[in-house]
Computed example of a mutant assay.
Amino acid sequence: MPGRIETKLAELGITLPTPAAPVANYIGFQVTGRLVVVSGQIPLVEGKVVTTGKLGAGISVEQGQATARLCFVNLLAQLKAAAGGDLDRVARVIRLGGFIACTPDFTQHAAVMNGASDLAVAVFGDRGRHTRTTIGVPSLPLDAAVEVEGMFELE
């Protein structure tokens, strides 16, 4: 029987993928005590980056939001593995960090990152409200347009 978070994901039409394997010398997540830190996740679908390039140069804010949302879905896949397969163990989303590949004149980083933040709250309710940092960068691995990392607390 699925838990409450799995049920919520199903209601939102979200199926979690298999957690992506790291592309370099790092691990997907680290658990220490009740904290889980999840490495940055890019917009992968079946092993391929689906949104490449830069915000402000052909990628709209709305596309960026959808990309940040997808990054959060990939973050959830890692988090599920870290929680032993049970997302109901997540007590809260502590922090999200967003990296937005963009042109120097792009200023709507926060709006893009809302794609991930809004999904965190949709999935976890008030436990999904979090602190956040959003940073514009000149490039990201594999030319991804967005990358999202996170810190969570387990029960």
Rank of each mutant, 00 (worst) to 15 (best):
L16F: 00
L16S: 05
P17M: 00
T18P: 10
P19H: 02
P19F: 02
P19D: 02
A20P: 15
A21W: 01
A21R: 15
P22S: 07
P22A: 08
V23M: 08
A24C: 09
N25T: 11
N25V: 13
N25G: 11
Y26E: 00
I27K: 04
G28Y: 02
F29V: 06
F29W: 06
V31L: 03
V31Y: 03
G33L: 02
L35N: 12
L35S: 13
L35P: 09
L35G: 08
L35R: 14
V36M: 04
V36I: 09
V36H: 07
V37S: 15
V38R: 14
G40H: 07
G40R: 11
P43E: 04
L44E: 15
L44A: 14
L44G: 14
L44P: 14
V45K: 04
V45Q: 07
E46I: 03
E46P: 05
G47S: 13
G47T: 11
K48R: 14
V49I: 14
V49M: 08
T52D: 04
T52N: 06
G53Q: 01
G53T: 04
K54M: 00
L55H: 03
G56C: 03
G56F: 00
G56M: 00
S60R: 14
S60A: 13
V61D: 14
E62W: 03
Q63H: 13
G64N: 03
Q65S: 06
T67P: 07
T67E: 05
A68H: 06
L70A: 10
C71Y: 03
C71H: 08
F72L: 10
F72V: 07
V73T: 06
V73W: 01
V73P: 08
L76P: 09
